[in-house]
């Protein structure tokens, strides 16, 4: 039973999605499957047949960062970068469901994504900033 994560990284060479813990704790491998954010290290690829999958590679539009990515850049929401693809994907899933989240709702949405650099404040700032211009995100 191959993991979705390995098929993305090794077969499709979509290496933006990272492997952190391999046990569903850190969220580095987050991708969106049929509209729902999941940990791709815990999903066997056989369960994703015919599913629509969004990875971090799918966020940029026409080779330009989208509004969410730009907000991470401007707010200092990315440092070492290992959590960033998962954070962006968790934030994207949140903003698709809730275009104007409160800071508490943002915290809950990224509770499954660990960051050891930023202390989270700048990540939350970035998601909050991105939400002010939803047209540039989705």
């Amino acid at each position: 039973m191959r993991r979705l994560l390995d098929v993305l990284r090794e077969d499709l060479r979509l290496t933006g999605t990272k492997e952190g813990c391999g046990e569903g704790e850190c969220g580095a491998c987050s991708v969106i499957v049929d509209g729902e954010v999941i940990n791709s290290c815990l999903v066997p690829v056989c369960q994703t047949q015919k599913a629509q999958i969004l990875t971090v590679e799918g966020l940029a539009m026409d080779g330009r960062l989208n509004g969410l990515q730009q907000a991470f850049l401007e707010c200092g929401g990315a440092q070492c970068g290992i959590c960033t693809p998962g954070m962006l994907i968790a934030a994207r899933a949140l903003l698709e469901a809730n275009a104007q989240p409160s800071r508490d709702e943002i915290k809950e949405a990224i509770a499954g994504n660990l960051c050891r650099c930023t202390g989270y404040v700048k990540i939350i700032d970035a998601i909050e900033q991105a939400a002010t211009a939803p047209a540039q995100i989705l």
Partner: peptide, 23 residues
């Protein structure tokens, strides 16, 4: 195997005996 959130953790840690799966 259903959602895999327990079972895949064991599989990733090589704590699951090679076995045949019913998904």
């Amino acid at each position: 195997i259903a959602g895999g959130t327990d079972l895949m953790v064991l599989a990733n840690a090589h704590q699951l005996e090679a076995s045949n799966f019913l998904d």
